[in-house]
């Protein structure tokens, strides 16, 4: 319970020579990023809760149970997932190389990660097109509506990451000392993107029995 210790301090006692700990700017950026990702997690958590609650209504149709369902063929989904895994792996390699001062490997990893992410967004767009052509549109049924909202927001999340990536690449090309710091931030962001995508993927292709079990376990039935 160490986080409670500061709250026990006797504030009214003055001190003569307060202690000091210097924190670098990178520390602040990391903290800010983690906080942002917490907010994003809450956002998706609430969407998932809404998804599960809505799945209990009689008009719910699963997305991937039978061959007539939109996500029964998961090839494109797996392909896109692979892009995101590669992006994450590249950044991890860049992160480790950055710490060991292998600059070329670090820069290469950073650039490749961004390209894979662009491939992911393009792939998701193609998936949407594919579903549209088959007549699966946003208001076909509630599970599909959720599919479009969740994948859309996740794609926006990736796109924002790509904007940050462009800034990072520009900074890194100009100023190598900040390389490790920026790669670190990108790595945190992309690992989160991957983890979030994995959860969404599992959620969207799960069976209704799984939803029912989770809802029952969490007492979400309304």
């Amino acid at each position: 319970m160490s986080f409670l210790t500061p709250l026990m301090e006797k504030s009214w006692e003055p001190v003569h020579n307060p202690e000091i700990q210097t924190l670098g700017r990178d520390h602040t950026r990391r903290a800010g990023l983690r906080l942002l990702l917490t907010v994003v997690s809450v956002l998706f958590f609430l969407f998932i809760v809404a998804f599960l609650m809505r799945s209990q209504y009689p008009d719910w149709q699963p997305l991937a149970e039978q061959s007539s369902h939109p996500l029964f063929n998961k090839t494109l989904l797996w392909l896109n997932t692979t892009y995101l895994i590669f992006a994450s792996v590249c950044l991890q390699i860049a992160r480790v190389s950055g710490h060991k001062n292998r600059l070329i490997l670090a820069k290469g990893g950073l650039v490749l990660a961004g390209l894979f992410s662009c491939a992911f967004v393009t792939g998701q767009w193609m998936l949407w097109q594919h579903l549209h052509q088959q007549g699966f549109v946003v208001n076909s049924h509630p599970a599909l509506s959720f599919f479009y909202i969740l994948t859309g927001l996740h794609a926006i999340h990736v796109a924002v990451g790509i904007v940050a990536w462009i800034v990072a690449v520009m900074v890194v090309m100009r100023d190598s000392p900040k390389l490790a710091q920026y790669i670190e931030l990108c790595a945190i962001y992309w690992h989160f993107l991957l983890g979030l995508w994995a959860i969404l993927f599992i959620l969207l292709v799960s069976k209704p029995e799984t939803y029912n079990a989770i809802v029952e376990f969490c007492g979400l039935g309304i």
Binding site: P6, E9, P18, E19, L23, T28, A31, L35
Partner: peptide, 17 residues
């Protein structure tokens, strides 16, 4: 606001001060 409070406090400014 949150990051500033957590990380940019001056020397001696503990949370409880």
């Amino acid at each position: 606001y949150v990051t500033t409070v957590l990380q940019a406090r001056t020397r001696g400014m503990t949370l409880m001060r």
